[in-house]
Structures are given as structure tokens and as C-alpha cells.
Amino acid sequence: MDRIFIRGLEIETVIGIFDWERRIRQRVRLDLEMAADVASAAASDSIDDALDYKALSKRLIAFVGESEFLLVETLAEQVAAIVRSEFAVPWVRLSVSKPGALRGAEDVGVVIERGQRLEAL
């Protein structure tokens, strides 16, 4: 199985547990790696046979931008569910981070994998 990736998708959203975080929009960063069979799309040269990563990105930008989760963990689970169910992705590795959320650190976040492990596909 091949992999398609999206790196550094930055979206403004309301996220956090503190009162001040509930009143502002903060930047989150998504990095996705998804299992896909690119051979069909390569053979046909048709978007109909490919994972439409532009449509996927637009869907995630809309969802995350409108969300108001307390935890990065919850956001990650919901994003992974959208990717798998709406875009028929059998496996996804997703990193969600909040740049600047922790003083002294460049970034903090979670990495999750959902679906069948790539080796099993």
C-alpha cells in the first residue's frame, strides 16, 4: 500500500482548557500520512481514481476551524474519523500540535494511528 501525506496544514480554531483559550483562536498544525493505492490513479491519470487531498484538506479546514474542543486529543480523534469515514482511507497517522502552547517549547501535541496498520494492508 502506498502513502499520501499532507504536512503542515495550519488552521485557526478555539482549543484549550483555560478560560482565556476559550475566548481566542489559536493555530493548530496537522500532519497526515494516509494509506492509499496510487496505482489506479497513476494508470488512469484521473482524479476520480485518486485520494482527492485538496477536498480532504478543505473538509478538515472547515471542520477544525468551526470546532471548539478542549483537548488536542479529542480534535485528533475527530479528524482521524473524518479522514477514514468520508474519504475511505483504511489507515491514517495524524499529528496534531499547538505551536507555542508550552513556554520554552516549539511545539506540543499528539500523534495517533487509526485503522489497519500499513504492514497489514
Rank of each mutant, 00 (worst) to 15 (best):
M1P: 06
D2K: 05
D2W: 00
D2Y: 02
R7M: 07
E10G: 08
I11N: 01
T13I: 09
I15H: 02
G16F: 06
F18R: 11
D19L: 08
W20H: 13
E21A: 03
E21S: 03
R22H: 12
R22N: 05
R23H: 07
R23A: 07
I24F: 08
R25L: 14
R25Y: 11
R25W: 11
Q26H: 13
V28R: 03
R29A: 15
L30E: 01
D31L: 00
L32S: 02
L32R: 01
E33L: 08
E33M: 07
M34T: 02
A36P: 07
A36N: 08
A36Q: 04
S40N: 15
A41K: 12
A43D: 10
A43R: 08
S44T: 14
D45V: 09
D45I: 11
D48C: 15
D48Q: 15
D49Y: 02
A50R: 02
L51N: 03
L51R: 06
D52E: 02
D52N: 06
K54W: 13
K54L: 12
K54D: 12
K54I: 08
A55N: 07
A55G: 10
S57F: 01
S57E: 00
K58H: 07
K58L: 15
K58V: 10
A62R: 14
V64L: 04
V64H: 02
G65C: 10
S67H: 13
F69S: 12
F69Q: 13
F69P: 10
L71I: 06
L71E: 01
V72S: 01
E73K: 11
T74I: 12
A76D: 08
Q78R: 15
Q78Y: 13
V79K: 01
V79F: 01
A81F: 13
I82Q: 04
V83E: 06
S85I: 09
S85T: 15
F87T: 02
F87H: 05
F87M: 07
A88S: 14
W91R: 11
V92N: 04
V92Q: 04
V92P: 02
R93C: 14
L94R: 00
S95Q: 13
V96D: 06
K98R: 02
P99F: 09
R103V: 14
R103N: 06
A105T: 12
A105M: 15
A105S: 14
E106I: 10
E106F: 12
V108D: 00
V110Y: 12
I112R: 12
I112K: 09
E113G: 06
G115L: 03
G115A: 04
G115T: 03
R117F: 12
L118Q: 11
L118E: 11
E119V: 13
A120Q: 11
A120C: 10
L121R: 10
L121P: 01
L121G: 14
